[in-house]
Design a protein around this nucleic acid. Structure first.
Lengths: 198, 198
DNA sequence: CTTAAATTAGAGTAATTACTCTAATTTCGG
DNA sequence: CCGAAATTAGAGTAATTACTCTAATTTAAG
């Protein structure tokens, strides 16, 4: 494994364990089995390391909320799969969502990038939701201005469920992902046209 | 205003502006117009300052989710008022909810206190919800195991709505509070027995 | 007043931080 | 094999950090 790779993996692990504040570049270098000088040869500062990690995260997210090809009919199962993948990514990069506002507050450049990414992901998600209506999985009362609000609510729940568990001292594992799914289901239940499967 | 008070106010303001990581005890002392030595006379370290601030936050929260006396019938308005107050407090102490998991990760003592507080607040909230059912504001399908999930979802949305706005670079003001309210309403709408007022 | 306790200022410290510099080593095309 | 470029190690630095110490000042009770 090359140096850049080792740095990103070591940094991600340390950030997830201890939070970005407690982890210095020297710690990262040590964990990656290299000298501080070498680390700085590859990334010119700590922010650049964080940015590189987030670039990967965004890349992992891209395929999650893209639509399957037209002829394929989406089902509840489709949504369930995507949401689970969503939780996996959130957990992989949990350090970021734990302290996102603070991180973006001190790095304007990163913030712009994040806002851009979020907007595009929200659009993907809305297209996704629309497809569910077209394919008859969801049905909203006519002219309901709530669709957007419901999606926003689901988004917030999906993005903060794991942090919620962590804050309350509860262990997070594969089962937690499923429970997060059920929360989304609880919100959407009144609009589901199929059976009562959760 | 006495020294302890000045420290807490200065610290809260700086934390909200810059995040706890960027704010040193020296900064706080300067902002409170006193020497570092004096600050340490009143609080033995930074964690103790944060804990003192959170003690206030918890105290402000206590009355929010306590029930009105039995004879008073609760209405949608009751819920709306409490939720608005909820958002006010979240905004006043936004630094904490921005980086809560990271803060609790490095301060075990604080984490225990927080977990205790959250559990008690969740219970209050469930009693609150039950009262709404009794008073006929909300109606859930019989034997629905979703009530708890819906409350959890509402809780997560309520606690993370402002951070969601901040993360996406949107300004937060009194109107934002109202919009957060509407998200909760969108979730609860199918279970509301009264009119369609949002 | 006197005096003791509470409060304050401010200099000082050891540790840690992000980051630089130089020199050594490795890699690799020709 | 050569030499240049890429990579690495590790010592070093200036700044900042949380926190301590001592001595000065204020407060308040008798």
């Amino acid at each position: 494994m090359n140096a850049k790779e080792r740095i990103l993996q070591a940094a991600t692990a340390l950030f997830n364990e201890q939070g970005t504040g407690k982890v210095s570049t020297n710690h990262i270098a040590a964990a990656a089995h290299m000298s501080p000088g070498n680390l700085y040869y590859h990334y010119k500062n700590k922010e650049e390391i964080i940015e590189a990690i987030l670039d990967r995260m965004y890349a992992e997210w891209d395929p999650v909320w893209t639509l399957p090809d037209e002829p394929v009919r989406v089902t509840e199962k489709t949504l369930r799969e995507r949401l689970l993948r969503n939780f996996e990514i959130l957990w992989e990069y949990r350090f970021f969502y734990r302290e996102a506002v603070a991180l973006l507050l001190v790095d304007e450049r990163l913030k712009r990038k994040h806002v851009r990414m979020t907007e595009s992901r929200m659009q993907d998600q809305e297209r996704f939701a629309h497809r569910f209506v077209v394919d008859g999985v969801l049905r909203f009362p006519e002219g309901s201005a709530d669709v957007r609000k419901l999606i926003t609510a689901c988004w917030i729940v999906a993005n903060n469920w794991l942090a919620f568990l962590e804050m309350n001292g509860e262990a997070v594992d594969a089962r937690s992902f499923g429970e997060g799914l059920e929360l989304i289901w609880a919100i959407l239940r009144p609009y589901l046209t199929e059976g009562e499967t959760g």
